[in-house]
Every structure is written in C-alpha cells, then in structure tokens.
Amino acid sequence: MKWAAFRRAKPYTAEGFPAPVSSAEGKVLLWDLEQVAAYRDGGPQPALPEWEDDGDLLDRREAAALLDVQPRSFDTYKTDPRLAGHAVVVCGAEHWPRAAVRAYDAARGTVAGPQGRPRGSGDMVPRDLLPGRIAELLDADPAVTAAQVVDLLGVSTSAAQKHLQQERAARIAARMRAEPGLDAEQAADRLDYPPAVRRTALRAAQELYDTR
C-alpha cells in the first residue's frame, strides 16, 4: 500500500488491527512489524513481551509517566545531558531507553545540592539546565518560592524569580487551553499556586494564552 493510500484508508482503525506500541496520544504512532505482518496475512498475532526491559525505548509521554510528571515538564528535562545523550530518533520521534530515564529519576533526588549561595559566586546551575530544575521544584511543591530556589539551586534571586514566573505562566496557560472557559485565576487555583506567588505570573499567562 502506498503512503497516500495508507493515510486515506487508515487501516489501523479497523477491528483486529494491532494496537500501537507507542503512546496512544503520541504525535507519531508506531506498530510492531511482526504483528502488522501477521494481521496482513490473516495469521495469529505474536504476543508482545509482558515485562519491562531496560532497553525499551520510551517516547516523551511514556518517559513523563515514568517520572510522574507532565509531558511538558519532560520537554524541559530532556535537555539535561543525562537524558539528551541517550535520545534515539525513531520515525521522527525522540525516544529514550527506560534505563536512562530510570537513572535520571534516581539522580533527581540529588538535584537540590548546594545549600545556600557562596558570596560572590556565579550561578551554580548552568543556565540551559535551570528551566528543568525549576520545573522539578514546581512538580514537587507548587508553592515553592524564589528564596527557596536560591537556597536549593544556588542561583541569583532575579534568575529564580524570572524562571519561576515563566514556568508558572506557561503552566497556567496550558491549563486554560486544556479546560476551555477557565480563566487565569481559576487555572492557578487548579495548580495549587498560593496568591502570594502567583501574582506576577497571571498577566504573563494570559498573554501566552491569547497569542497561541
């Protein structure tokens, strides 16, 4: 079957067609070749392994689920060298070995390394990794403050405030898009952001929502 015909016919929607081995909501759907061949030939479909293997390749949604975070948060995490160095592109979609994601998850507990910021020092977390660290802290505690970020990550107060505002605003806007009719204040409530830390993010969130 030619690709154009495949797209029109969508044989994967037919009853009995094997289920994708990728995330059902992923942008790229992938199937097991042996199962599809068996379906084509009218034979019994071979069973997929029932156990998890460290070599399994996970897409962004599966990796996010393993880390117990939202896919949007994982989009930030994946820039970390501990994950970026293991990325594998399959049919245009990035995947990561289960072992690499598990190792990253185990190492996340050490992220909050330096307690306090030595006088005169530069930012301790590399700038390109800071959004991912901020996302982790918000996943753990939606009410985390800039002062806590300074203590945990060793960054400047201005950097902590800036990245917290950006990440909170992005999450508020994402919640508004996911739940039509929700305003910025209501989205912030759903995300458990206390009033004291949400004020600066609300306007930015509304602007993000209006421009996308």
Rank of each mutant, 00 (worst) to 15 (best):
S22I: 08
D189R: 10
A106C: 01
L30H: 08
K27C: 08
Q148M: 10
T110D: 15
R190V: 02
D53Y: 00
T13M: 10
A14D: 10
V149T: 09
Q45C: 11
A19M: 09
F74L: 14
V111W: 15
A64R: 02
L129N: 08
R119G: 07
Y77K: 08
L208W: 07
W51M: 02
A63P: 07
P46M: 09
L129C: 12
L202T: 04
A135I: 02
R168E: 08
D80I: 05
T79W: 11
S156K: 15
A147E: 12
T76K: 15
G85A: 14
V90R: 10
P71E: 05
V21Q: 01
R198I: 06
A37E: 15
R82E: 13
Q35C: 03
R82H: 06
T76W: 09
L191I: 04
Y104P: 11
D75M: 12
L83T: 04
D75Q: 08
M176I: 15
E15A: 15
L138E: 05
Q45P: 04
A196V: 11
D75L: 10
R98A: 05
E15T: 14
L152M: 14
A147C: 01
K2S: 13
W3N: 07
R72W: 10
I172P: 11
S73F: 08
D68R: 13
D59N: 13
G120S: 01
E50V: 11
E52H: 02
R98P: 05
M176L: 14
K27S: 13
A107Y: 03
F6N: 08
V111T: 09
D54C: 04
Y193Q: 00
P97H: 02
V90D: 06
A146R: 09
R72Y: 08
Q148D: 11
P118W: 01
R203V: 06
G26L: 05
T157V: 11
V89Q: 03
D53I: 00
Y104R: 00
E25M: 15
P44G: 09
A169S: 11
P195L: 00
P44H: 03
Y12L: 01
G55Q: 12
R117I: 13
Y193C: 00
Y209I: 06
H163R: 10
M124I: 07
T211L: 07
P81R: 07
D68A: 14
L48I: 12
D54N: 13
L152W: 13
A159K: 03
H95Q: 13
P49N: 02
L130D: 03
K10T: 06
V144G: 00
V90S: 06
L83H: 06
E136Y: 07
W51L: 07
P180I: 10
P195W: 00
K2Q: 03
R171I: 05
P71W: 13
T110E: 13
Q45S: 11
G109W: 09
S156G: 14
Q186D: 14
L66N: 02
Q206F: 02
T211C: 03
